[in-house]
Deep mutational scan, measured.
Amino acid sequence: ELVLALYDYQEKSPREVTMKKGDILTLLNSTNKDWWKVEVNDRQGFVPASYVKKLD
């Protein structure tokens, strides 16, 4: 499943990933309501769920 980055996000820990507004990311896990695991540029990590939106 793919998600769209709604905002820029700068990683604050090694478990997170940086994304730019408009990026298309692969959603790996959305079981946590606050932090979703995504893959971007061959890196996996977490981003705030409120910063991304699922693409239909």
Rank of each mutant, 00 (worst) to 15 (best):
L6T: 04
K53R: 11
W36A: 05
N32I: 06
D8P: 06
T26Y: 13
T26K: 15
F46Y: 15
L2H: 10
N29H: 07
L28M: 08
L4I: 15
V40F: 15
E39L: 11
E39H: 08
Y7G: 05
N29D: 15
N41C: 12
Q10V: 14
A49T: 06
V40K: 15
E16K: 04
V52Y: 01
W35E: 04
I24W: 05
S50W: 10
I24Q: 05
A49E: 04
L55V: 11
V3S: 04
E16V: 05
R43H: 08
P14D: 14
L28I: 13
V47Q: 00
T18I: 03
L28K: 06
K12R: 14
V47D: 02
V17Y: 04
L55T: 06
K12C: 10
Y9V: 00
G22C: 08
L28N: 03
L6R: 05
Y9G: 00
K37V: 13
R43C: 06
L4S: 05
L27H: 02
R43V: 08
S30T: 10
P14R: 09
V3D: 00
E1A: 13
L28V: 12
D34H: 15
Y9M: 01
D23T: 09
L55W: 08
E1H: 12
A5M: 03
W35M: 05
Y7L: 10
E16S: 06
I24Y: 07
G45L: 05
I24A: 03
K54M: 12
V47Y: 01
S13W: 06
T26M: 13
T18W: 04
V38A: 01
V3F: 08
N29P: 03
Y9Q: 00
Q44D: 07
S50E: 10
N29E: 15
M19K: 00
V52S: 00
A49D: 02
W36M: 04
R43W: 05
T31P: 04
P48T: 01
V3C: 12
K54D: 04
M19T: 03
N29F: 06
P14I: 12
K53G: 10
N32G: 10
D56C: 12
K53T: 14
K54Y: 10
L55D: 05
T31R: 09
K33T: 11
Q10G: 07
S50G: 11
T31H: 12
E16P: 05
N41T: 09
L2Q: 11
P14Y: 11
Y7K: 14
N41E: 13
N32C: 09
D23A: 08
M19H: 00
Y9C: 02
K54W: 08
F46T: 03
Q10C: 10
Y51M: 12
D8G: 05
L4N: 03
D34I: 14
Y7H: 11
N32D: 15
W36F: 07
W35K: 02
D23L: 06
S50A: 14
L28W: 06
T26G: 09
A49F: 03
D34A: 11
E16I: 03
D23C: 07
D34T: 13
M19W: 01
P14C: 12
K21V: 07
Y9T: 01
E16G: 12
L27Q: 00
Y9L: 01
S50L: 09
L27C: 08
D23Q: 15
N41H: 13
T18K: 04
K54V: 12
E11Q: 14
Q44S: 12
Y7D: 08
Q10Y: 15
T31V: 10
D23M: 14
E39N: 07
K20C: 10
Y51T: 07
Y51I: 07
T31Q: 13
P14T: 10
M19N: 00
E1Y: 14
D8H: 06
L27F: 03
V17G: 02
N41Y: 13
K12N: 10
P48N: 02
V3G: 14
W35N: 02
N29T: 08
K53Y: 09
A49G: 04
Q44R: 11
D8I: 02
S30Q: 10
K33I: 11
E16C: 06
D34L: 13
S50P: 07
E11K: 14
L28G: 00
M19Y: 02
V52L: 15
K20S: 09
E1K: 12
V52P: 01
W35S: 02
I24V: 12
S13K: 08
M19L: 09
Q10T: 14
R15Y: 14
N29G: 07
P14S: 12
P48R: 03
R15C: 14
Y7V: 09
R43P: 00
T31F: 09
L4C: 08
K20N: 07
Y9N: 00
S50I: 10
P48S: 02
K54F: 10
T31I: 09
T31G: 12
K37H: 11
V52E: 01
S30I: 07
E11N: 07
K12Y: 06
R43I: 08
P48L: 03
L2N: 06
K12V: 08
T26W: 13
W35A: 02
K37Q: 13
E11F: 06
L25G: 14
K53H: 10
P48I: 02
K20F: 12
T18C: 06
Y9F: 07
K37A: 09
V40M: 15
R43Q: 08
L6K: 06
K20A: 09
V40L: 15
L2T: 09
L6H: 03
R43L: 06
N41M: 13
G22V: 00
V52F: 05
L25M: 14
D56I: 11
N41P: 10
R15N: 15
M19V: 10
G45Q: 02
D8V: 02
E39P: 00
V38Y: 00
V52C: 12
K21H: 06
Q44A: 11
N41S: 11
V40I: 15
S30F: 07
K21R: 11
L4T: 08
D8L: 02
V47G: 01
P14K: 10
W35L: 03
K37S: 08
N32Y: 08
A49K: 06
V17I: 15
W35C: 06
